[in-house]
Simulated assay, not measured.
Amino acid sequence: MERRSLLSATAGALVLSGLAQAPAEAAPASDLVTTFNVVSDIQGDLGDFAQALQDIRATNPNSSGLAVAGDITPRGYDFEYADVQKVLDRNPKPREVAWAIGNHEFYVPKWADPNTLAQSTWPNGTTEDSLFRSFHRFAKRSTVYAETTFGGIPVLTLGTERYMKYHDASLWDEVWISDAQFQWLEDRLQYWARRRKPVMVVTHHPLPNTVSGTRSKIYQSDYLQPDRLLGLLGRHRDVFLFSGHTHWDLTLSDWYVRRVVPGTANLDGFSVVNTGAVQTGFADNGQGGESTVPGHFNQGLQVDVYRDRVVIRARDFATGSWMKQVSVPLATRI
């Protein structure tokens, strides 16, 4: 079939409003390669996390995986990770789970004990290494970056390798990526491009000038090396970057964008998708800040990978309803 060509631009971010709001075309079930789900920002809201898992089972029983785009816990205590695991154990879930690390996984040093906030005495005897060890034990791996597959589709998780407050007193949650992680990402993107597979990249922090909220000063400086990361992702037409952190409402028009990176040969850009949040939702307050979305907020995504397109659907777990969807043509048929 003839594929619809995506618009291109030389500016940093391109929002395809018409494409993002249009219903996905019906596709034969035989063309479906796999389906999976994405959530983020649980942050201790375990009731809503359980609700999301139940809804995913009901609406997508054949889901091949669940990607969690960071802020798994409210602070990063081992007992908080254990509480998340209990919810997973007590509810239906996809067999594969891919975890990305978030800034809330590094908040133990702000507390003298779990009940006493003590930022003035940061880090309260907590070592940086212990925070990474807690994440590694929970995620059952030895690095913050990792690769898995959901139904044969590669899923790469990225994350900071330093909590920057330990290295620079003027910083807090900024993302620092090592040369090793950058090289690994470049190698994996090239590997899967040669095999004509779309690549799903999951990271907690959003890149500047992409999805909802990222034109605000609040999120402009999340990455210490944003251009290097954009330069790698921007070369690949069939990369899909899922980011959390902002909690911004998936009803917003720029929940999905194509990010074109100047200087790359890929003038169609790559896909960037906001993941919403399990916990509290936010939106623009009109004054350069954020306002809380009223009511019960609990949102996430379902991703259906077909041989010639990827359909991303925004889900309201609280109301059990679909919000919108986008159908993104692939450059090559799987």
Rank of each mutant, 00 (worst) to 15 (best):
M1Q: 11
M1N: 10
R4L: 14
R4E: 14
L6H: 09
A11G: 14
G12I: 15
L14Q: 15
S17T: 13
G18S: 12
L19T: 06
A24L: 02
A29D: 11
S30F: 03
V33S: 08
F36L: 04
F36E: 03
N37F: 01
V38S: 04
S40R: 00
I42A: 02
F49M: 10
Q54R: 08
Q54A: 10
D55T: 12
D55H: 07
I56H: 01
T59W: 09
P61F: 03
P61I: 07
S64G: 09
G65P: 00
G70H: 03
I72Y: 04
D78G: 02
A82F: 02
V84I: 15
L88W: 09
L88H: 07
D89G: 07
D89A: 15
D89K: 09
R90F: 12
K93V: 12
P94L: 00
R95T: 14
E96M: 13
V97K: 07
A98N: 01
N103Q: 08
H104M: 01
F106T: 05
V108W: 01
P109K: 10
W111I: 05
A112V: 02
D113T: 11
T116D: 07
L117S: 04
Q119A: 13
G125M: 00
S130H: 05
F138G: 00
R141D: 05
V144D: 11
A146L: 03
A146R: 12
A146Q: 12
I153H: 03
G159L: 09
Y163K: 11
M164S: 05
H167T: 02
H167K: 05
D168V: 09
L171A: 12
W172L: 12
D173I: 12
V175H: 07
I177V: 15
S178D: 08
D179G: 10
Q183S: 14
W184R: 03
L185T: 05
R188Q: 15
A193Q: 14
R196V: 06
M200W: 01
H205A: 12
P206Y: 05
P208L: 05
N209E: 13
G213D: 00
I218C: 02
Q220A: 15
Q220D: 12
S221P: 00
S221W: 05
D222Q: 06
D222M: 09
D222N: 12
P226Y: 09
D227F: 12
D227N: 14
R228Q: 15
G234Y: 01
H236E: 10
R237Y: 02
D238M: 06
S243G: 06
T246M: 10
H247G: 02
D249P: 01
L250W: 04
Y256W: 11
R259N: 07
N266D: 14
G269K: 10
S271G: 13
S271P: 04
V272E: 03
V278W: 00
T280S: 11
T280Y: 08
A283T: 14
N285S: 09
N285C: 06
G286N: 07
Q287C: 03
T292V: 15
L301V: 00
D304N: 14
D308T: 13
V311P: 00
I312V: 15
R315H: 08
S321V: 12
W322S: 06
A331V: 04
T332S: 02
R333A: 14
I334Y: 13
